[in-house]
Amino acid sequence: MTAQILAQIVVYATVLSLVYILMSLGLTLVFSIMRMINFAHGELYMLGGLSVYYIYGRLGLNYWVGILGAVVIMFFFGLLLERTIFRPLRHDMLAACLASLGVGMMLQTGALLFFGEEEKAVPPVVTGTFQLGNVSISNERLLIVLVSVAITLALILFIKKSKTGRVLQAVAQNPEAASLQGINVTRMTAVGFGIACALAATAGGIIAPLVYVSPYMGVEPVLKAFIVVIMGGLGSLVGAVIAGFVLGFVEQFSLTMFGFVGHIFGFIIIMVLLLFRPRGFLGKDFKVH
């Protein structure tokens, strides 16, 4: 393996890891607050992409207005989903998971009917390539790197420092205790879910120009996001960041070295890592409450 290839792998693995982290932020939040695996995450991500497609690609408004639009729309959509479907199911983790699967199915088919079956492009936000040593990387990808680092840091700061963030953290750690402290756990859970949906939509909106939008764009990435979130440990954001890097690097290296068969090694490494760290990288013991 030459230095050139190694450099290429490292650069692109970093990008891939950050994409995985970006995609898993919303899922991590839902997982930490509601203890549920949100199977509709991929479809929320897809809706974010579609919103940006319509606002930025079709209406011709500014890209960041498109992202903002997606965030606002999906935040309220998240509140609606939480109120109608996930709140009644909050004591039954498995039912909530399956309900999210049903929601995902409906959203996906709804998008197919509304949007059509063809993959469509979101116009590029930036163009050109950047020469990093002897590795060339497009400015589009650099933008994603910057944005996902910014969003991840902002979210971690928000959770750790802001008042709402600390309240969310308290709800995630121990809802009973939080409730005794006078926190309105129900409302905070709804807010948390809304923020998670907004994060999913942001990820979709940010990644859409790099790839394409289609009703099925969320199907494949969501499996990777599950792995990142759960390997990270019970809803730990920092854990998810570590897991994102582990998954990104393991995948990029094994795929570059072995081709398609590398997918198998990737999954096996994940299984082995989980066996050595049965609670994820930064997780605590799992208890349903």
Binding site: T2, I5, Q8, I9, Y12, V15, L16, V19, L210, V211, Y212, Y216, M217, V219, E220, P221, E251, Q252, L255, T256, G259, F260, G262, H263
Partner: peptide
């Protein structure tokens, strides 16, 4: 020189392109 395969629905082909470029 070789045959490469990807999973349907994939969006990241950078690893494959690295292999091809070499």
């Amino acid at each position: 020189l070789g045959s490469e395969f990807f999973e349907r629905g994939s969006t990241d082909f950078t690893a494959m392109v690295t292999r091809i470029l070499s």
